Computed example of a mutant assay.
Amino acid sequence: MAKILVVDDAKFMRMTLSNILVKANHEVIGEADNGIKAVELYQELKPDLVTMDITMPEKSGIEAVKEIKEQFPNAKIIMCSAMGQQKMVVEAIEAGAKDFIVKPFDEGRVLDAIKRVLS
């Protein structure tokens, strides 16, 4: 069971992802709706894993990944992107994200990515 921080500016997406995670016996220890909160919550909660949306207000997911990875080089972050954001996904991986999942979320794909990144 992993402690997971879910970051997405859309409440519906956070709920959808949280439901998938909880059903698979993971614990959602926090939620953030922008990159600034994501960094603050990471520092405070030190989760095992973060699911990070790319496009968010105030600070993008990519900026948040860079900031988290600077402070916590071992942070495990999976990016969440909408279709057609391939260029941004590449940027996110270069910034230190370990994997990515595409919206709308496919339960199997989400859990596979989490298993891969945590193992």
Rank of each mutant, 00 (worst) to 15 (best):
L45M: 15
L45A: 11
K46G: 02
K46Y: 12
D48T: 15
D48W: 15
L49R: 12
L49F: 15
L49Y: 08
L49Q: 11
V50S: 14
V50H: 04
M52F: 14
D53M: 00
D53I: 01
I54T: 08
T55L: 10
T55P: 00
M56W: 05
M56C: 09
M56D: 13
P57L: 08
P57E: 10
E58F: 15
E58Q: 14
E58A: 09
E58I: 13
K59L: 13
K59H: 09
K59M: 15
S60V: 10
G61F: 03
I62P: 02
E63M: 08
E63G: 01
V65L: 04
V65E: 02
K66W: 05
E67P: 00
E67L: 05
I68K: 03
I68Y: 07
K69A: 08
K69Q: 11
K69P: 07
E70I: 13
E70P: 00
Q71S: 06
Q71C: 02
Q71K: 14
F72L: 03
F72I: 00
P73T: 07
P73K: 08
P73S: 13
P73C: 05
P73W: 07
P73I: 04
N74R: 11
A75H: 07
A75Q: 03
A75S: 10
M79T: 09
C80A: 14
S81F: 02
S81R: 03
A82E: 05
M83L: 13
M83T: 00
M83H: 00
G84T: 04
Q85V: 04
Q85F: 05
K87A: 12
K87Q: 09
M88E: 08
V89T: 06
V90D: 14
V90C: 07
E91M: 06
E91R: 02
A92M: 00
I93H: 01
I93L: 15
I93P: 07
I93F: 06
E94I: 08
A95R: 04
G96H: 14
A97M: 13
K98F: 03
D99F: 10
F100G: 02
I101S: 01
I101L: 10
I101H: 01
V102F: 02
K103G: 02
K103W: 07
K103V: 04
K103Y: 04
K103L: 03
P104V: 01
